[in-house]
C-alpha cells in the first residue's frame, strides 16, 4: 500500500477562467515538495492541459465541475487526478495520438496528451462515454530528494 503523506481536493466550475486557478492551487500544493523551477513548470503545464481538455472537450457546450485530487506519495512522488463528469472519450488510444483534436477550428493543437506524457513520469486515462474522464499523472520530484540528501550530508559534517 502506497503511503499518502498529504492530500488536497478541489472542485470548480468548468469555466476557462478557472484554468489559471487550477495551476495556482496545484503550484501552492506542490511547493511543499521543494520542486525545481523546471519540475514546477512541467507540472503546471501538464495540469493546464488536463484541465483544459475537461473544459473544452469533456464539457463542450454543457456545464459541470472539474475535480482535482492531489497527493504527495512516499519517495517524493507527486500524484494528481483530474476528473470530469463530461461526455467521456470513445477511443482513448486515438485521443492520445499527437495532433488528434476534435476542435481544429479553435486552433487546438491536439498536443495536450503528448505534453502530459512528456512532462510527467507516467499518465493513465480512464474514460467512459457519457460518464466522464479521469486523468491520473505522477511525477517524482527529484530536486526534493537532492535537498534531503544534502541535509543529511550537512548533519554528518
Amino acid at each position: 500500500m502506497v503511503q499518502i503523506k498529504n492530500e488536497m481536493r478541489i472542485s470548480f466550475r468548468a469555466e476557462s477562467c478557472n484554468e489559471a486557478l487550477a495551476r495556482s492551487v496545484v503550484t501552492a500544493f506542490v511547493m511543499q515538495m521543494d520542486p525545481s523551477v523546471g519540475e514546477l513548470a512541467d507540472i503546471k503545464t501538464a495540469v493546464s492541459e488536463a484541465v483544459t481538455n475537461s473544459i473544452v472537450h469533456g464539457y463542450r457546450g454543457t456545464k459541470g465541475n472539474v475535480e482535482l485530487l492531489c497527493r504527495i506519495l512516499e519517495n517524493d512522488v507527486f500524484y494528481i487526478r483530474v476528473r470530469d463528469r463530461g461526455c467521456g472519450i470513445e477511443d482513448v488510444a486515438a485521443a492520445m495520438e499527437p495532433l488528434f483534436t476534435t476542435a481544429p477550428e479553435e486552433e487546438r493543437a491536439g498536443l495536450g496528451f503528448a505534453v502530459m506524457e512528456s512532462f510527467m513520469d507516467n499518465i493513465s486515462v480512464r474514460s467512459s462515454v457519457g460518464k466522464g474522464t479521469s486523468v491520473i499523472m505522477k511525477k517524482r520530484i527529484l530536486s526534493a530528494s537532492l535537498v534531503k540528501a544534502g541535509a543529511a550530508e550537512d548533519e554528518r559534517c
Binding site: R23, A41, K44, T45, S48, E49, T52, E106, E107, R108, A109, L111, G112, A114, V115
Partner: peptide, 13 residues
C-alpha cells in the same frame, strides 16, 4: 511566464 499547448495553436495559426 507560462504557456501550454494553447500557445502552440496560437503560433501555428
Amino acid at each position: 511566464t507560462f504557456m501550454d499547448s494553447s500557445g502552440i495553436g496560437l503560433v501555428m495559426g
